[in-house]
C-alpha cells in the first residue's frame, strides 16, 4: 500500500512537471499575442495568413477583454496549479483545464466555421490547452482512491448515511 502511494506521488510529480512545461509554453504564446495586441500590430503568421483576421475579428474579445489576455490568465492558473501540491493544486488545475480547453475548442471552431481564417498561434494555444487538460485529468485519476468509497466519504459520511 505504501509503495503504491509512493508510486502515485512520483507519477503526480511527473504530471505536475509536465503541466508546468505546457503552462510555460502557453504563457509564452499568450504573452506574445497580448504584446502584439497592445502594440496594435498583427501577429507574425509563420504559416498561412489569417492571424490579423482572427485578431481583428469581433470574437477576439469577451466583454472588451482580449481573448489573448484570458489565455494568459488561464496558463498562469495552470502554472500555479502545477506548483501547488495536493488537493488545491489538483482542484485548480482541473477547473482551469476544463475552462481553458473548452473555450479554446470553441474559438478554434469559430476560426474554421465563422471567421474562416486560421491563426496558427491560436491553434498552438488550443493544442496546449487540450494537452494541459489531459495532464490535469491524469493527475486527478492518479491521486484518486482506487476502489470503494471516496476518501471524503470515509472521513466524513454524508448526513443521509448517518
Amino acid at each position: 500500500m505504501a509503495r503504491r502511494l509512493l508510486d502515485g506521488d512520483r507519477r503526480e510529480l511527473s504530471l505536475r512537471a509536465a503541466l508546468a512545461v505546457v503552462a510555460l509554453a502557453g504563457i509564452a504564446v499568450a504573452a506574445y499575442l497580448v504584446v502584439v495586441r497592445v502594440q496594435g500590430q498583427s501577429p507574425t503568421c509563420v504559416v498561412g495568413g489569417g492571424c490579423a483576421t482572427v485578431q481583428e475579428s469581433e470574437y477576439s474579445t469577451v466583454l472588451g477583454i482580449p481573448v489573448a489576455v484570458l489565455g494568459l490568465v488561464s496558463y498562469l492558473g495552470l502554472a500555479t496549479s502545477a506548483i501547488l501540491p495536493g488537493f488545491l493544486g489538483r482542484c485548480l488545475g482541473l477547473f482551469v483545464g476544463i475552462v481553458a480547453a473548452g473555450f479554446s475548442i470553441w474559438l478554434t471552431w469559430l476560426e474554421v466555421a465563422v471567421i474562416e481564417a486560421i491563426c496558427p498561434w491560436c491553434v498552438v494555444s488550443a493544442g496546449l490547452s487540450v494537452a494541459a487538460l489531459g495532464i490535469v485529468v491524469a493527475r486527478v485519476v492518479v491521486t484518486s482512491p482506487p476502489d470503494g468509497p471516496s476518501q471524503a466519504a470515509v472521513a466524513s459520511p454524508s448526513p443521509a448515511r448517518r
Binding site: 469577451v62 489538483r90 482541473l94 482551469v96 476544463i98 473555450f103 484518486s144
Partner: peptide
C-alpha cells in the same frame, strides 16, 4: 481527490465555460 469534489469542480468549470461561450 474525492469524487464529490471532482464533480463539484467539473460542474463549476462547465458553468464558467458556458458563460464565457455565451458572452463570446
Amino acid at each position: 481527490m474525492s469524487r464529490k469534489w471532482i464533480i463539484r469542480t467539473v460542474a463549476a468549470a462547465i458553468l464558467v465555460l458556458a458563460a464565457l461561450i455565451t458572452l463570446s
